[in-house]
Amino acid sequence: MTRVVQDAPIPTIPFNARISRWFGRNVLRIYMIFGFTYLFIPVAYTFVFSFNDAGKSNLIWQSFTFRNWQNPCGAPEVCNALGNSIKIGFLATTFATILGTMIAFAIGRYQFKGRSSSNLLIFLPMATPEIVLGASLLSLFLLFKINPGFWPTVIAHVMFCISFVVVTVKARIASLDPKLEQAAMDLYANEFETFRRVTLPLVAPGIAGAALLAFSLSFDDFIITNFNSGTLITFPKFVYVSAARGIPAQANVIGSSMFFLALTIVVVGQLVKERKAR
């Protein structure tokens, strides 16, 4: 073995080898730029057209204005529809999160007879196309002479949100170390206290995530809503109905605001998580 000979010239990597290595390393990053551009083009369109001074039909660019943002309710139907969507979203999220979390705890924490068929009942609504869910529920309401409208829509939303809540919360429960609960019991906490002081705080981020997911699913749903809402107008329904003759630019204001609001919530959530992890 030779000892260090530091006088030797420093060998450098050939230029073409560097280029091909650089490309090999960065081809995916370049792809990522294209991918994200593709993802954001429609969002950019929605955002840009929220500044369009277009009156009723917002399909063609006219001129720039802040008016739509200053007065989002300038087209009153938009705000009315938005209000309905938010109300339905809150109610559906609350019920679906409660019911779904209970199911998630049952499946995630207990061994019992019928566990696998329970999983199947959770999986099936997710494997059924929305149109079938919407149409079948409408048939049931009609059978019992219940008129479509606000509450049937809430029920429909709770129904399709439950499965997503169960799956999300269950994943969080499965990632918990059971030793934590054992440690709590070892330190004199009874079952209820263990649940309240250890299990629930640890599962809480999963429940919060599930609730956010449920709200966004409910808020964005069109197909099931269309079947069960009767004459009630929700935000997606409003956009659909007015798509043919042109959507008021205020709808773009609402859509863009939703985008920024949700982005803020998620980013803040991430930051809180990272801060806690430190």
Binding site: M1, V4, Q6, P9, I10, P11
Partner: peptide
Amino acid sequence: TRLTKTYGDFNAVDDLTLT
């Protein structure tokens, strides 16, 4: 021969010669 690996301004491996 005189092997160096730099990450940013940190030399993970610094002018290493070895047989």
